[in-house]
Simulated assay, not measured.
Amino acid sequence: MIQEIPPEFWQGIEEFNQQEYYACHDTLEALWMEAMEPTKKFYQGILQIAVGLYHLSNHNWRGAVTSMGEGMRRLDYYQPDYFNINVEELIDQTAHLLSAMQEAGPEKVADFVFAKNAEKNSLDIHPPKISKIEE
Protein backbone atom coordinates (compact mmCIF):
# COMPACT_ATOMS: atom_id res chain seq x y z
CA MET A 1 0.00 0.00 0.00
CA ILE A 2 1.39 3.40 -0.99
CA GLN A 3 1.36 5.96 1.76
CA GLU A 4 -0.14 9.40 1.28
CA ILE A 5 2.32 11.83 -0.31
CA PRO A 6 3.25 14.49 2.25
CA PRO A 7 3.60 18.13 1.11
CA GLU A 8 7.20 18.17 2.36
CA PHE A 9 8.01 15.58 -0.30
CA TRP A 10 7.01 18.02 -3.04
CA GLN A 11 9.10 20.70 -1.33
CA GLY A 12 12.12 18.36 -1.50
CA ILE A 13 11.45 17.62 -5.18
CA GLU A 14 11.28 21.35 -5.95
CA GLU A 15 14.57 21.89 -4.10
CA PHE A 16 16.15 19.05 -6.10
CA ASN A 17 14.96 20.54 -9.39
CA GLN A 18 16.27 23.99 -8.37
CA GLN A 19 19.68 22.38 -7.71
CA GLU A 20 19.34 23.11 -3.98
CA TYR A 21 20.70 19.66 -3.15
CA TYR A 22 21.68 20.34 0.45
CA ALA A 23 18.20 21.72 1.24
CA CYS A 24 16.64 18.75 -0.58
CA HIS A 25 18.70 16.41 1.58
CA ASP A 26 17.49 18.09 4.77
CA THR A 27 13.85 18.10 3.67
CA LEU A 28 13.77 14.48 2.52
CA GLU A 29 15.91 13.19 5.38
CA ALA A 30 13.25 14.31 7.86
CA LEU A 31 10.65 12.31 5.91
CA TRP A 32 12.98 9.33 5.44
CA MET A 33 13.66 9.01 9.17
CA GLU A 34 9.91 8.68 9.91
CA ALA A 35 8.88 6.64 6.86
CA MET A 36 7.98 2.96 6.66
CA GLU A 37 8.91 0.62 3.83
CA PRO A 38 8.52 0.64 0.91
CA THR A 39 8.52 4.44 0.91
CA LYS A 40 11.56 4.72 3.20
CA LYS A 41 13.86 3.19 0.58
CA PHE A 42 12.34 5.45 -2.12
CA TYR A 43 13.16 8.57 -0.11
CA GLN A 44 16.65 7.24 0.52
CA GLY A 45 17.27 6.72 -3.20
CA ILE A 46 16.36 10.30 -4.07
CA LEU A 47 18.34 11.54 -1.07
CA GLN A 48 21.45 9.71 -2.22
CA ILE A 49 21.24 11.14 -5.73
CA ALA A 50 20.85 14.63 -4.21
CA VAL A 51 23.87 14.00 -1.96
CA GLY A 52 25.84 12.83 -4.98
CA LEU A 53 24.98 16.01 -6.86
CA TYR A 54 25.94 18.05 -3.80
CA HIS A 55 29.31 16.25 -3.71
CA LEU A 56 29.71 17.01 -7.41
CA SER A 57 29.13 20.72 -6.75
CA ASN A 58 32.05 20.53 -4.30
CA HIS A 59 34.29 18.72 -6.82
CA ASN A 60 34.15 15.50 -4.77
CA TRP A 61 34.19 12.98 -7.63
CA ARG A 62 34.32 9.86 -5.45
CA GLY A 63 31.48 11.01 -3.20
CA ALA A 64 29.39 11.98 -6.23
CA VAL A 65 29.92 8.71 -8.07
CA THR A 66 29.33 6.55 -4.99
CA SER A 67 26.19 8.37 -3.80
CA MET A 68 24.56 8.59 -7.23
CA GLY A 69 25.22 4.90 -7.88
CA GLU A 70 23.72 3.89 -4.52
CA GLY A 71 20.69 6.11 -5.09
CA MET A 72 20.02 4.59 -8.51
CA ARG A 73 20.29 1.07 -7.09
CA ARG A 74 17.76 1.88 -4.37
CA LEU A 75 15.33 3.44 -6.85
CA ASP A 76 15.49 0.55 -9.32
CA TYR A 77 12.67 -1.26 -7.47
CA TYR A 78 10.30 1.69 -7.96
CA GLN A 79 10.42 1.83 -11.77
CA PRO A 80 8.71 2.97 -13.86
CA ASP A 81 7.04 5.37 -11.41
CA TYR A 82 6.23 5.81 -7.74
CA PHE A 83 4.53 8.63 -5.80
CA ASN A 84 3.64 10.19 -9.19
CA ILE A 85 7.38 10.50 -9.94
CA ASN A 86 8.88 9.26 -13.20
CA VAL A 87 11.54 7.11 -11.52
CA GLU A 88 12.69 5.53 -14.78
CA GLU A 89 13.51 8.95 -16.24
CA LEU A 90 15.39 10.03 -13.08
CA ILE A 91 17.49 6.86 -13.16
CA ASP A 92 18.22 7.28 -16.89
CA GLN A 93 19.31 10.92 -16.46
CA THR A 94 21.46 10.08 -13.44
CA ALA A 95 23.00 7.07 -15.22
CA HIS A 96 23.91 9.28 -18.20
CA LEU A 97 25.68 11.79 -15.94
CA LEU A 98 27.35 9.05 -13.89
CA SER A 99 28.62 7.25 -16.97
CA ALA A 100 30.12 10.45 -18.40
CA MET A 101 31.77 11.24 -15.05
CA GLN A 102 33.24 7.75 -14.75
CA GLU A 103 34.57 7.91 -18.30
CA ALA A 104 36.19 11.31 -17.69
CA GLY A 105 37.65 10.38 -14.30
CA PRO A 106 38.22 12.36 -11.10
CA GLU A 107 40.69 14.80 -12.63
CA LYS A 108 37.88 16.20 -14.83
CA VAL A 109 35.28 16.60 -12.06
CA ALA A 110 35.14 20.39 -12.45
CA ASP A 111 33.85 19.94 -16.01
CA PHE A 112 30.69 18.38 -14.63
CA VAL A 113 29.75 21.05 -12.10
CA PHE A 114 26.52 22.80 -13.06
CA ALA A 115 26.12 26.54 -12.65
CA LYS A 116 23.26 27.32 -10.27
CA ASN A 117 19.99 26.64 -12.08
CA ALA A 118 21.78 26.09 -15.40
CA GLU A 119 20.05 23.81 -17.84
CA LYS A 120 23.40 22.25 -18.76
CA ASN A 121 27.13 22.58 -18.22
CA SER A 122 30.01 23.18 -20.64
CA LEU A 123 29.86 19.53 -21.73
CA ASP A 124 26.19 19.91 -22.72
CA ILE A 125 25.21 17.49 -19.95
CA HIS A 126 21.99 18.26 -18.11
CA PRO A 127 21.53 17.93 -14.35
CA PRO A 128 18.96 15.26 -13.46
CA LYS A 129 15.43 16.57 -12.95
CA ILE A 130 12.59 14.84 -11.17
CA SER A 131 9.47 14.77 -13.31
CA LYS A 132 5.98 14.37 -11.96
CA ILE A 133 3.62 12.01 -13.77
CA GLU A 134 0.49 13.95 -14.64
CA GLU A 135 -2.71 12.11 -13.79
Score class of each variant (00 low, 15 high):
Glu14His: 08
Asp76Glu: 14
Ala110Val: 10
Glu37Phe: 06
Ala115Pro: 04
Ser57Arg: 14
Phe16Glu: 11
Tyr22Ile: 01
Asn84Pro: 00
Gly63Ile: 09
Asn58Thr: 12
Met36Ser: 14
Glu70His: 12
Glu8Ile: 11
Ala30Met: 05
Glu88Tyr: 03
Phe42Lys: 05
Leu98Phe: 04
Gly71Arg: 08
Met33Pro: 00
Thr27His: 01
Gly52Asp: 07
Leu98His: 10
Arg74Gln: 13
Leu53Ile: 09
Ala104Met: 09
Pro6Leu: 05
Leu56Tyr: 06
Lys120Gln: 14
Ser99Pro: 02
Val87Glu: 03
Glu37Leu: 10
Asp111Cys: 11
Lys108Arg: 15
Leu123Tyr: 02
Gly63Cys: 03
Tyr78Trp: 08
Val87Pro: 10
Asn84Arg: 08
Tyr21Val: 00
Glu14Tyr: 11
Glu103Ile: 15
Ile46Phe: 03
His59Thr: 06
Thr39Asp: 13
Lys108Glu: 15
Glu29Cys: 01
Ile13Asp: 02
Leu28Met: 15
Ser99Met: 06
His25Val: 02
Glu8Phe: 07
Asn121Ala: 12
Ala64Asn: 04
Met101Asp: 01
Phe83Val: 14
His59Ile: 02
Leu90Pro: 09
Ala30Tyr: 01
Leu97Cys: 14
Tyr43Lys: 08
Asp92Ser: 13
Trp10Tyr: 14
Gly45Glu: 12
Phe83Thr: 08
Asn58Lys: 11
Glu89Gln: 15
Glu107Asp: 13
Pro80Leu: 05
Leu97Gln: 07
